[in-house]
Design a protein around this nucleic acid. Structure first.
Lengths: 130, 130
DNA sequence: GTAATGTTTCCAGTGACTGGAATGTCAAGA
DNA sequence: TCTTGACATTCCAGTCACTGGAAACATTAC
């Protein structure tokens, strides 16, 4: 299977698939003409990567997950621990964004938003008392 | 004022301050020995940058905000529009993260998390039916 | 005088791709 | 058969916002 088809099957752009090969996440064989040739197993790995990445796992975490995927004797505890850690990270990020949103909202509410030059948002950024 | 003091005053590492100079966000004068010399106005700009960055504005948005900060005839409507747009972006990001968290949580809940090799998280990433 | 600290410039690396150029291969239609 | 267009290859560079490190020079403290 050529790279474009592999991309459609895995929902990844060809550029990304070549990149994943560069960093040794996948090793397709080559056809006689030098084209990459993706097997069904390769597609499974690519789909796995696409899903794990879209769930916010980093490339290195994906590499680890793939090694667990390859390992028939893996312990599900390892995978669960990674997932729980990822949930913690997501929770922290959500908290940060909520605080950020509150600050921005407060700034926007105090800005009259017309053509007058005085602007509480700029003043706050500049650190002026208000 | 030397760069380290400027960094302390603005809560930015010296490396970052030099970087901001590289990309023309700030232009300190130079002392006779070649050291950068930061004025009080420079510190204001740096603090402004630090605050705007920590509120999630990109460097290019900061550049724009700084030009509004410099411009005594700016319209506060411009600044408010940027802030509201940023709030929208933050809202979208929070939504994404909430969905992501729900998926991860669902996966973790269905994983027994012990030494057995079968793992619903891996199976889901691999796209297997469950 | 010397050691520690601070400053300079420059180059390279991060993460995870993405864009583009130059070149080669293949399949379909006139 | 020729040509056109879609697809493939490699390699280099750029993204964003820094960050790390090396080599060399300046200043400060003891």
């Amino acid at each position: 299977m050529n790279i474009k088809t592999a991309g459609i099957q895995s929902n990844l752009p060809p550029k990304t698939i070549r990149y994943y090969e560069d960093i040794n996440l996948i090793r397709p064989t080559r056809a006689e003409n030098g084209y990459r040739d993706y097997s069904v197993q390769d597609i499974h790995r690519l789909r796995f990567l696409q899903r794990a990445r879209s769930l916010g796992f980093t490339i290195e975490e994906c590499r680890h997950l793939l090694s667990l995927y390859d390992n028939k004797n893996r312990a599900s505890a390892d995978v669960k621990a990674m997932t729980l850690e990822k949930i913690d990270q997501v929770d922290r990020k959500i908290e940060e964004l909520n605080a950020l949103r509150a600050t921005l909202f407060h700034l926007a509410q105090n800005c009259h938003g017309d053509g007058r030059p005085d602007c509480p948002i700029i003043e706050t950024l500049a650190g002026e008392a208000h």
